[in-house]
Write a protein that binds this DNA or RNA. Structure first.
Lengths: 350, 350
DNA sequence: CTGTTAGCGCTTTCAC
DNA sequence: GTGAAAGCGCTAACAG
């Protein structure tokens, strides 16, 4: 009932092999033959059987994209950019790759499971986005998995994630979270802030640690005192930002600034500051990280560090497809850009 | 070099068929045998060949999700919810479905191309999210494609999209965009507004048309005059909202409210209102649509219509997997809920 | 409950 | 430039 390549071959009066060759366009075929085949394909409304060709060719045209949370624009933007470069429709013929988006929810276990599932699909490439879980056992398990994938011919690219062990053959486009965190806090210090609350992301995450390290490095470099009470951990969402800010303000009502792990958290922080009857930035300055699209529309607009998410994703996609060379050493560090806006100002009593 | 099912069978001293059965868990196998097989799988570090099983079984465990723009949380939230229900890791064994997210960018052509690609993959199900392009030729082409997919055993679910022709066998979970638009405008009318600007989405989109119809129905029902000059079309992004608002205000500085096609557009509208030196809602009220997470953090918080995106996505996912019954007639209308917040108030001179 | 037997539909050497 | 033939690795009747 379903049309197969053999049917097309019969109709075009050629062998199945020839049909395969014109369909894949990776082999010389006489122009007249090609046209005859294409016509037959059309007339028969033939659709290639993906699994069958993947089986025979030992590779599929699926590209895996691992994200923590696809509902978060941070990941959505990267995923969209990656997808646009892996040659979806509109790309040159034959390069119709499909993106398999895997939501790990930040769980190490699910990350591994998805990697296995992608291995099972014989994915052409896998792009892992965002920070990694910091846990030796898990890191080793992931590295092992990546090695297996690479051995099976799957190209691995890390986008916005620290490099994996060199023997995994994974190309890494890493965000300079440490540097960004440092810039943000230095900006605040420059404004005169000395008592700053810090809302960190979930523990055991590279992104969380690096941003926090940047913050602390800035404090240390400028001799500004740190205080364990001024740091709180939470999820990367608005709710966590709201609650953490309330807690921070309760612990120390004298805080003049709140540094949030990312923009989403910062939005929650802004709400908490306002709900506490304080003004931004007059009473409390707030900063975020990432510069997601809505950040400029916060009131006042959020001071933050802009990460070129779309560019990074696009580049990762091209590298995954072998359409762009990997950076020297397989590692590139992508810096963020400090965006100073209305949510930060000099502290009142400075 | 790569381990196959036959290797596992040999090691476990059973037939390949038995191994297949324990792996798929859809057939009775003696507990002791199962365990032996599982052990062999483990020892050999065996990973099933997806394409091979898809070929043999004539169906894959891929589920396609068509979205206009995955970077937009409107789609990201639905996609995430769908994915969480199609039995990713954590689901019961054997139900490891992968989500293939396809970004159509709102292009009818790419939508069709992706549908073909999904057909090629023998996708188990396809979920089409968001509004459809309004164009007879295209609608017919899509319907034809859906029929073919359904014939091949692919389950089709529409999520947040108007029903397709009945013979496509597509289940539809439709958002009541018309009703939501009407509620919003009635709320404004109730407040005393009589001169309202409307920023519509792109033309030729069902969502755009329905929301606008709701707006106009409300105007008509209350005898409030409409004016062609008060409607502007644009993309569903902040920039479009910003520019459209400036244009609207230029055309009629007396406008007391701006109705935006969605929250993202509303954010841009708010910025434009403020940049024009006007206050929200004192001078101009602004409303959005969707109630995306950031909407409550706008200042003032956005009055909007909440769409249960996550619930709808989850339900679509379950229906696609056959884990929930389709609604009677294959169509369910999902209503939004009016969320009255600070961005709307009575007009000044009312 | 388990083994045997055929393919599923395509790609790919290897000849011609 | 094109054809023939041999699988790729798995599932699904059908027996037993």
């Amino acid at each position: 009932m379903t049309v197969t390549l053999a049917d097309v071959a019969a109709r075009a009066q050629v062998s199945p092999a020839t049909v395969s060759r014109v369909l894949n366009g990776n082999y010389p075929v006489a122009a007249s033959t090609r046209e005859r085949v294409l016509r037959a394909v059309d007339e028969l409304d033939y659709v290639l059987n993906g699994p069958a060709s993947a089986l025979a060719a030992a590779t599929s045209d699926l590209v895996g994209i691992l994200v923590n949370d696809i509902a978060d624009p941070f990941f959505g933007i990267m995923a969209g950019a990656i997808q646009s470069e892996i040659g979806g429709p509109g790309g040159r013929a034959g390069g119709e790759r499909l993106a398999v988006v895997c939501n790990t929810g930040g769980s190490a276990e699910r990350e591994l499971t998805y990697l296995t599932l992608l291995q099972r699909q014989r994915a052409a490439a896998v792009v892992l986005t965002g920070g990694a879980v910091e846990n030796t056992a898990h890191a080793e398990a992931v590295a092992t998995k990546l090695r297996k994938l690479a051995d099976a011919g799957t190209k691995i690219v890390l986008c916005g994630r620290p490099p994996a062990p060199a023997d995994t053959d994974a190309v890494a486009l890493t965000f300079d979270n440490r540097g960004g965190g440092q810039q943000l806090t230095e900006h605040l210090i420059g404004l005169g802030h000395r008592r700053m609350g810090y809302i960190a992301g979930p523990e055991e995450r590279t992104t969380t640690r690096h941003r926090l390290e940047g913050h602390r490095a800035a404090l240390a470099a400028h001799g500004v005192p740190d205080n364990p009470d001024w740091t709180v951990h939470g999820r990367y969402d608005r709710r966590a930002g709201y609650e953490a800010t309330l807690e921070l303000l309760r612990r120390d009502p004298e805080l003049t600034a709140v540094v949030a792990a990312n923009d989403t958290v910062a939005l929650g922080a802004c709400a908490a500051v306002r709900d506490s009857g304080l003004r931004i930035p007059d009473d409390v300055s707030v900063v975020g990280f990432d510069d997601l699209p809505f950040s400029i529309d916060a009131v006042p607009a959020l001071t933050t560090v802009r990460l070129p998410l779309a560019d990074a994703g696009a580049r990762a996609g091209r590298i995954a497809m072998g359409r762009e060379e990997a950076p020297p050493g397989g590692i590139a560090t992508i810096r963020g850009e400090l965006m100073v806006r209305g949510s930060t100002g000099a502290p009142k009593n400075s």
